[in-house]
Structure formats: C-alpha cells, structure tokens
Design a protein around this nucleic acid. Structure first.
Length: 274
DNA sequence: TAAATCCTGTCA
DNA sequence: TGACAGGATTTA
C-alpha cells in the first residue's frame, strides 16, 4: 500500500506517540511476517528495548531501539502499522500478524491481508538483511536537483516511469506518486530518460518533491487499504489528477485520461498534458 | 524487459 | 469468474 508519504505520516505520528516507550513483548501470529531473526530470537531480543527514535528511508520505517537494535518495517502492498492505546484495543481483528506490547500499556498492531509486509530486528551491520543497502537516495533528503540529473543521465535508456519505480535509482516513489508526479511535470511515462528535454529533469525533480510533500500534508493517499498509525485514512486521494481515473476528463486540458501497462504496472496519464 | 512469485480481497 | 491491486525479488 504505502509509498513515501504514507510511511512518513506514520513515522511522524509514532514519533510523538511511541518514542520513550519500551517494547515489553511480541505476539507473533504469522511467522512469515518476521524477516529476521528467527521468531524465537525476535521475541527474546525485543524485550525491554526502549524506542529512542524513528527514521525512514524510502518506504522503510526504522525504529531506533536501545542496545543499538533497529526494528525495520516494510508495509509493502497492504500492511498497516497502528498504534493502539491501552483502553481501545480492538479484538478479533482479521490479518493481525504481530502485536508489539509497550510498557505504557499501548501496543503496535501490524496487520497485512496479503502478507507481503515484513519486520526485521537488526543489529548495526545487518541492514543488508532487510535490503536497506540496495536503496538509492531518498527523494526528500537524499540528493539535490543537480545530483538527480546526473543519476538520470546514467540511466538514459530506461523509460522514466519504470526508472521512478526502481528503488535502487531513487527511494520512496510508488505507482500512485510516480504517475501523479509525471502528470504534474507534464512528462509522458513512456519517455526514455535520455530523451527528456533540457528543462525536464529539474522540473520533474521539483514536481516529485512537491507531490510527495503534498501527500504528506494531506495525510497520505487512502486509495483502498491505507490507514495512518491512528487507524485513520488520508486525504490525498481527493487530489489525484490521473491515478485511477481512466476515462475521466483531465481537469487541466479536458483530454480523456488513459491507462496503459508499463513494467507490469497500471499507468495512468493525460495524453493532452503529457 | 517481462513474467512468475509471494498472498488475499474486491470489483466489474 | 477473471482482472486487478500503494511492492519487490527472482528467474527466464
């Protein structure tokens, strides 16, 4: 489900809700959600670790815990991480795979219908186990427009949409924000990076940063499953210009929005603007 | 560069 | 019933 803005919204919420609290226990209902270490070790090691801080790289959420442990979370398509305070615990929730109990009485609920999401409990030097070492720079703090332009030049043969989804190139964009950013920059998704016009790369860079910032501002996009750490939907779905709007008229130029498949992903764009 | 894979749910 | 889904990796 979530892309950079959704993960960032959750990170900010958990910063105010959970930092300073301590992990006391883990309930694991589906062991496949634990990427590392083996479930028994995960349960044993996570006890009594203070939550010192939370950071984010691309779509990864990273809890910085006592003892230099890192709890790395990737929600993939349908994962949800919800902070539940002591007096409002839901019960019998379907697809609830992991509960992390906190000393305050609150808990972190990880649920995920499609079971693609993962949690890893790592020590420094083990970041590669979660794949963190393969990520390119984060879109919001990783590079300047100039550095982005250089990276683009090195991948001139790739189609721009495909490139934007490649987390090794740059980290954090997913299918929705890639399409929305290309629309805002007026660039066709199938264009090859090397064929972009002179002013395109910088405009695209700005459009992506602006679109992501807007996504965060409106609390993320709840297209189907996404909920923030408080269990509430975001609002950016109301501001989508092309994603999921095949057959509708572009608000800017009136053209009919099209859907094509690129790299196996549904891709929406406006043939008039892009 | 595409398809298969990991899964379940929803919608046309 | 089949197509499709905010992701990412592996294999062909």
């Amino acid at each position: 489900m979530p892309e950079l803005p959704e993960v960032e919204v959750i990170r900010r919420e958990l910063c105010s809700l959970a930092v300073g609290d301590t992990m006391v226990n883990a309930e694991i209902n589906f062991s496949g959600s634990v990427g590392f270490p083996p479930v028994q070790d995960f349960r044993r090691h996570i006890k009594n670790l203070v939550i010192k801080d939370l950071s984010r790289k691309g779509k990864f959420l990273i809890f910085h815990l006592g003892g230099s442990f890192l709890l790395v979370v990737h929600l993939r398509m349908t994962g949800n991480l919800t902070y539940v305070s002591d007096n409002q615990k839901p019960s019998g929730q379907k697809h609830l795979h992991i509960v992390l109990f906190l000393r305050s009485g609150a808990a972190l609920y990880f649920s995920d219908p499609r079971k693609f999401g993962r949690l890893w409990l790592l020590k420094p030097g083990e970041e590669h186990i979660a794949g963190l070492d393969r990520l390119g720079p984060d879109w919001l703090y990783g590079v300047t427009a100039g550095q982005f332009k250089k990276r683009l030049a090195a991948r001139g043969n790739s189609r721009i949409k495909t490139l934007l989804l490649d987390q090794r190139f740059m980290a954090g964009l997913g299918n929705i924000y890639a399409d929305e950013s290309l629309k805002r920059a007026g660039i066709h998704p199938a264009v090859r990076a090397g064929s972009l016009k002179q002013t395109d790369p910088e405009r695209l860079f700005r459009a992506i940063q602006k679109t992501l910032a807007e996504g965060i501002k409106y609390g993320g996009t709840s297209f189907r499953d996404y909920l923030n750490a408080s269990g509430k939907p975001g609002g950016f779905q109301k501001r989508l210009l092309v994603y999921g709007r095949k057959g509708e008229h572009c608000e800017q130029c009136g053209s009919v929005i099209e859907r094509i498949v690129m790299g196996g992903r549904g891709t929406y764009y406006c043939p008039g603007c892009q």
